[in-house]
Design a protein around this nucleic acid. Structure first.
Length: 284
DNA sequence: AACGAGACCTGGCAGC
DNA sequence: TGCTGCCAGGTCTCGT
């Protein structure tokens, strides 16, 4: 489920919880990718949701209590994770591994069948210390730029790919280079740029870098916009988010005709993941 | 330093 | 109907 657009939509779906107070945290399964910190159950009750933000595919939820800042909960949805904001009394589903009960009755649950997701707790007793703790956190400190922000630009991509022999698709999926470009959007933005996924990153021209940066930004932005319009569905108990049936040019279309040139879309493996491309529209 | 492979898990589907 | 094998949107860790 979650590539960057889904994570961004999930974060926006949590906005109704700003200012809400936690009553109880129930951990039903102790370990996702890493153990869920048991102290969440003791620290969070009576705390309020202070701020929501996102870095790469991590959702950051900051909490405060009457004494001040408490810390930040870091959520990752992994491959199959999903946040469900539900009314009181909604029965728990099979893979709801952790739930946050709010004093007004609402329930937030993390549902994650494959358990590749993560819930971590980064304590800090003031906002300055929190900022520092986040910047130094091992999962966050070596991340590349956000794809939708201005510091991810043609000049950056061109400069940082010089001399690289690795395939461009693997390079744009590397979170040290740029965060948030997952398997779907890597294939899609390369198609839209007319660049072959196996082209060595260091061989891209300045023009190609500029084109790729623009297509990564627009592909992600369009998906977020489409997802935003189905936010309610996305967050419902059994929501059926319309935008997963979003239009793809190449992803999951092997053997079908390219919509631009009618050539047959091909599927290959790169880094043990499937890549889809049009052999005519995308040149090495 | 850079790259590739393995690891973590369950569920859904095709093929027999 | 049931079994087997393969595939899946992520990313950390380890070995070469």
């Amino acid at each position: 489920m979650p590539e960057l657009p889904e994570v961004e939509i999930s974060k926006r779906g949590l906005e109704p919880l700003l200012g809400a107070t936690i009553a109880q945290v129930n951990i039903h399964f102790p370990t996702l990718r890493w153990p869920i910190p048991p102290e969440l159950s003791s620290v969070l009750p009576q705390a309020q949701v202070a701020t929501l933000s996102r870095r790469a595919k991590y959702i950051l939820v900051a909490f405060r209590n009457q004494q001040g800042h408490l810390g930040t909960m870091l959520l990752h949805l992994g491959m199959s994770g999903r946040l469900c904001l539900l009314p009181a009394q909604e029965p728990r589903a099979k893979h709801d591994h952790i739930e946050w009960l709010f004093t007004d009755g609402r329930i937030l649950r993390l549902r994650d069948p494959r358990r590749f997701g993560a819930v971590l707790w980064i304590p800090a007793d003031n906002e300055q210390a929190q900022l520092q703790a986040l910047q130094q956190h091992p999962l966050l400190k070596s991340l590349g730029p956000e794809p939708l922000l201005a510091d991810f630009d043609a000049e950056y991509l061109y400069r940082s790919t010089r001399g690289k022999t690795a395939a461009i698709k693997l390079v744009i999926m590397d979170s040290h280079m740029v965060v948030g470009v997952g398997n779907i959007y890597a294939s899609e933005s390369l198609f839209r740029s007319g660049i072959h996924p196996q082209k060595p990153a260091g061989k891209l021209s300045k023009t190609q870098c500029a084109r790729l940066v623009e297509e990564i930004k627009s592909t992600l932005a369009e998906a977020i916009q489409a997802g935003g319009s189905s936010l309610r569905d996305f967050f419902g108990a059994d929501g059926n988010p319309g935008y997963f049936q979003q239009h793809y040019f190449v992803y999951a279309r092997p053997g079908l005709a390219c919509e631009r040139c009618q050539s047959v879309i091909r599927q290959i493996k790169q880094g043990q993941r499937s890549t889809f491309f049009c052999p005519k529209c995308q040149r090495k």
